[in-house]
Design a protein around this nucleic acid. Sequence first.
DNA 1: ACAAAAGTGTTGGACTTACACCCATGC
DNA 2: GCATGGGTGTAAGTCCAACACTTTTGT
Lengths: 242, 242
Amino acid sequence: MTDRPHAELRLTADLAVLTVREGRLEVLVIRRGNEPFLGCPALPGGFVRADESVDETAVRELAEETGLTGLHLEQLEVFSDPRRDPRGRVVTVAYLAVAPDLPVPRAGSDAAGASWESVDRMLDGEADLAFDHARIMAAAVERARTKLEYTTLATAFCDEEFTIGDLRGVYEALWGTALDQRNFSRKVLNTDGFIVPTGRRTTSGLGRPAKLYRRGPATMLHPPMLRQAMHGTESPGHPADR
Amino acid sequence: MTDRPHAELRLTADLAVLTVREGRLEVLVIRRGNEPFLGCPALPGGFVRADESVDETAVRELAEETGLTGLHLEQLEVFSDPRRDPRGRVVTVAYLAVAPDLPVPRAGSDAAGASWESVDRMLDGEADLAFDHARIMAAAVERARTKLEYTTLATAFCDEEFTIGDLRGVYEALWGTALDQRNFSRKVLNTDGFIVPTGRRTTSGLGRPAKLYRRGPATMLHPPMLRQAMHGTESPGHPADR
DNA sequence: ACAAAAGTGTTGGACTTACACCCATGC
DNA sequence: GCATGGGTGTAAGTCCAACACTTTTGT
């Protein structure tokens, strides 16, 4: 404890907010309204205040910049390369946030605008994300993919009430594989506390009405959902657009 | 990006270094040589310097305070309650480090001393760990327990060369359950890339000499090691000392 | 009637558990 | 010899992928 920091250090929280829309994994990005990286897409986020924890910063910035509240939020990783921000020493705590398919969020006051964008497009190298936000986004996607296997995270992508088909759509969008509908529902229903029936059914929609469910009390899945593809392999109805 | 931090904020890296010794899960603690918490047990750690990433801070502090190098290191969680440090605003990035059963590390220059202590004793409420280090330690143990299931983390607790019995001892110490030796070795050997034989065998020791292995290239386990206990249940040879 | 989506039944194979039994060493 | 740990064989039970088939809706 002899060393003291030699230069001022600032701390931020940045959020990778993921959702599934029309079978595609999407991420919330803002357009930067200031230098550096003026006009570039970036993740929402901002500086930690003196009287708040970083977790509180994340919640506050999410609400301020995008109007979203009540999402699943978890710490992802700290990014602290001394040269990651041209303005000086800025360390960021990256968060993974998971949202249901919400109406396009309203633009906040800070950012020039916020919008859902395809994760594939943001990460294919053309998008010029600000700072190291491409790395943060990639870490968030990887974390979400992994956590689908052994936690109930997938339900955080769904509305309050959802069908097993909706839930399967989340897995298919994140894993890019088609899953067998029949085996999927059995597996989900046989996992205690994953989802609980509400008693209601879907009214509109093609095909036979589906039972509706909401999140159950479980957070960990035993046994895990396995990532195996169907014999037909490859992605579901919505092709991997690029 | 309008808000600027109002007060100076300092950033530290703190490490929960875990190992298994004599069938017990142990953690490396130092005795604090300064106020606050003078004389209390604490996790090794220190301030982030201007020109280094937090990951680099963790490696450096570990070497300086304990003499340990080359360990498995991973970010655990950021602890940032504004009142977690009586000296002012100090945010810490907690790390999980995993070490093989090394000789007692030499005391470093900063700390009054470093020693291995039983995790159970440190977390049973009597130990008066400094700051929020009990929470950090608990998070590290929980993370290590979980990661044993679906990653090859257990090999980081072993020496360069180890037997399957050594590896099983790691699982038993962390999970507090006895595992069937016969099924355990088959499971481990049937998981591609988990461990690779060196061709050598143990020379000394009770019973039939065991084949020696080293870590394989795999990092994730498919399928995961299941936490099931033997029918006899409960901990192995070394009773849960408390 | 047909397409589309939900849901049930069933079978073969993979994996797992529990345990019998054999191997190699120190004392 | 016998205790101690390493290692192989195997049968019963469980889980799961695959797929045939039925149900219920919209058009």
